[in-house]
Write a protein that binds this DNA or RNA. Sequence first.
DNA 1: CTTATGTTGAACCCATGAGTTCAGAAACTA
DNA 2: TAGTTTCTGAACTCATGGGTTCAACATAAG
Lengths: 206, 206
Amino acid sequence: MTTTRGRIDKRQAILEGAFTVFAREGYAQACVQKIAQEAGVAKPTVYNHMTDKATLFRHAMEAAARTVLDERIAALEPLADPGADLRATLEEVAHALLRLHTDGRSCALRRLLFSEITHFPDLLEIVQDSGPDRLRQALADRLARLALTGRLRTTDPDLTAEQFLALLLGPLEARTRLGTRTLPDPELRTMAGDTVESFLRAWGAA
Amino acid sequence: MTTTRGRIDKRQAILEGAFTVFAREGYAQACVQKIAQEAGVAKPTVYNHMTDKATLFRHAMEAAARTVLDERIAALEPLADPGADLRATLEEVAHALLRLHTDGRSCALRRLLFSEITHFPDLLEIVQDSGPDRLRQALADRLARLALTGRLRTTDPDLTAEQFLALLLGPLEARTRLGTRTLPDPELRTMAGDTVESFLRAWGAA
DNA sequence: CTTATGTTGAACCCATGAGTTCAGAAACTA
DNA sequence: TAGTTTCTGAACTCATGGGTTCAACATAAG
């Protein structure tokens, strides 16, 4: 404690500590005392920056969501210019998405969002719109380019993107036991391969 | 209140009331007082049947999971003897599964399971093993029969079943806004159709 | 009628935790 | 150095809620 650094990033420390504790304990069980402790800060300091436990939660979720989203969008980058081997590029992207999706932060974010969605309906706009929706959108854009150059045969890139993501990420829930089990990397590779295999069988160019 | 009926089903009423309140409020926010009220019972009566709030939760979840599972397995029935039109049968089953999966009880069950999985790890065995896993197993059995009679071309029914369910149920999360929005039936029909379309393109017999 | 079991409402104990107050200590500003 | 802002720790208030107790009551069996 008493890591007396600059004051500007106290807020940052609080948000990170808050997310850590919320992720570990859940919203209701997480007490502000522990959050302050996790952030290396006194309890009143927390209330200096955030009026409420609720708004603290909102801001922590928002911050976590932003970083998670950025990583995921970045993972689509290879599709912007796929080489000759489309399958390999798809598998690479699929594998990257799987790793990001099974990351502890990502799992915790989804779990918290899911569990508190009834008490914080506004989290949906804050997190979801800037999460899966944007990812699907970005992927759809990539796929549309591929369709235009004849490397995929689809007339509905949005649907195709939705199905690719469903095929890829759907099995994760059961396999990771709702995020309580971490999958070995070879299994992720296999899943990426299986997904791309079926995806190309359905949508690949002749 | 004071619906003084037989004593045998007090337990049943408590379990149902408990699930209702847990679903509405979440585990931590649900207070036993309200559960008792919802079940039309006095608080000490609840503690007569269940030692703890925790075990009350476990039993309520278990009971809810059992009914949900039974419905889902039953929805696969048409696949036991698909008529000449395999596509139509698959669409029928897909549509039934979508409706069950978007049901309020089902959504609430998944949300509670997801949110409390860190505090009640044993729920995984109680609920999950008898949930998605058994459903996938049952579907894989059906698909294997179809493969044997040449109506599907797959060598791995388990993977195929997993992908069918992923393709079907994966998009639900985003579309129902994590279960906070109910989808109109025509949209469910469209989703079932899209799923079967892609599924057959990847796995259908020539 | 009597006894045993289960239910009821109300009151109670007690732990937890949100949010506040305050006096003093850093730390940054000038 | 003096002044302003922020942080700190500890103690405090207060509401919530888990779990229990108890005396009165209902019911069913013998």
